[in-house]
Simulated assay, not measured.
Amino acid sequence: MTGALDRTKLLAARFRAAQDRPYLATALFSLTVVESRRVPTMGVDRRWRCYVSPDFVDRLPVAQLAAVWIHEVAHLLRDHHGRADRLPGAGRHDHFRVNVAQDCEINDDLVADLLPLPVDRVEPKTFGMRDGLLFEQYLSMLPASVASHPGIDCGSGAHGLDRPWENGSPGGVSEVEAGAIRRDTAHGVRAHARTRGTVPAGWARWAAEVLEPKVDWRRALTGAVREAAAWASGAVDYTYHRPSRRSSAMRGVVLPSLRQPVPRVAIVVDTSGSMGDEELGAALAEVSGVLQAVGIGGNRVTVLSCDADVHAVRQVHTVGEVQLAGGGGTDLRVGVAAALKARPHFVIVLTDGYTPWPETPLESTRVIAGLIGSDAPQPPSWITTIRIDG
């Protein structure tokens, strides 16, 4: 057991990291150091506090400590905790596997940049995976044996779950400040790439995403479905199944009461020859999750497989019940027409866009098109369009 944290050595390592990678300097110097004997090595929380083990600092030379500084700040710059929060439930709570996948996303860039990371690091090749992917992709590819890999816990600033050593120490960075740091760093990455051309591909990709953000289609789809569901729920109607309470004041007269319907949804799936089963399955799974999130399920969802004709119509409870059939030409107008027979409040169409569309808006029914593929043609303007990039 060592004495107090050797701050001189630790801060010298940070200074070296900032000198060697000047585009990361602002982010590195935004971290607040917190000494802790409970953290295994080094870890960060959501507020950009860096918890450091004195023993870990004593064991590593300055050059390796500088590489670890860059590794930890990369978790925060890449918003790993925010992205982990958006994972499906089962994956989100397995913080160890999430952290390993995140380390794979970071360390392939750091190794390619010749940074001397500790020998017990993990990188994609540790598990026979290729470089250059995002942690969400690595997470699904990790083998079951990853659970036996020891010593990885970069804190809630990485995997998103609070750790015992994160004690809410003073200082820290707000979400607004973190966004400004990310943008400043992204500009630094681009400037460095223009003048020296030595930025790893992963950092260049990250900078482009920060400075030229793409809309997350899952969020956009969720928003469109929520809006359509709210619109449908506002379509109140009269019913005699439960008479109005005012009937008691009018002898011999039964008054209807108002009801607010649970939205009915039809999903038209393009199963023509131009559509791939993998893309369709993934998009359908996302749509199912969105519908469940807004409280639409049970027998309220009808799925229709369609190419130039309708091949299967089913009310489903889970994605596993969906039957996809077809493989011919494409005319989703027949699928939409068939969907309207179930009197849905809104229709979701999953397609690559190479299809005729109804020429005029549908009466009392909204249409949301999930376009699969970056080159999918644009539907008519009255259709809510979400581009699904995978």
Rank of each mutant, 00 (worst) to 15 (best):
D94H: 06
L5V: 07
D79G: 12
Q260S: 15
G43L: 00
V262S: 12
E136I: 11
R314K: 14
P200W: 02
T385G: 05
A207H: 01
A27N: 04
D153I: 00
I267Q: 00
E286L: 07
G298V: 02
D108W: 14
A193L: 11
P256G: 04
L87I: 09
A235D: 12
A369K: 05
S233C: 10
A12T: 13
I386P: 04
P243M: 07
V52Y: 02
Q323P: 01
T26S: 14
I181N: 14
L28A: 05
T318E: 07
D20I: 02
G89H: 10
W165G: 00
R387P: 10
I296V: 11
V268P: 05
E209H: 05
G373W: 07
V98I: 08
K125P: 08
Y51P: 02
E363L: 14
S274R: 00
D79H: 11
M250E: 13
E212I: 00
D6L: 09
L28G: 01
R196V: 14
V253R: 11
R78K: 10
L139P: 06
C104I: 10
D131Y: 12
V336R: 00
R259N: 03
E177G: 13
P40I: 00
G89A: 14
R97S: 13
R264M: 05
V316F: 04
A338W: 02
L110S: 03
R205F: 05
H345V: 01
R194K: 14
P200M: 03
G160V: 05
T239N: 07
A158E: 00
R196N: 12
G89S: 13
S53E: 07
W357V: 09
V310F: 06
D113F: 03
V33K: 03
V322A: 04
A180E: 15
V215F: 00
R182I: 14
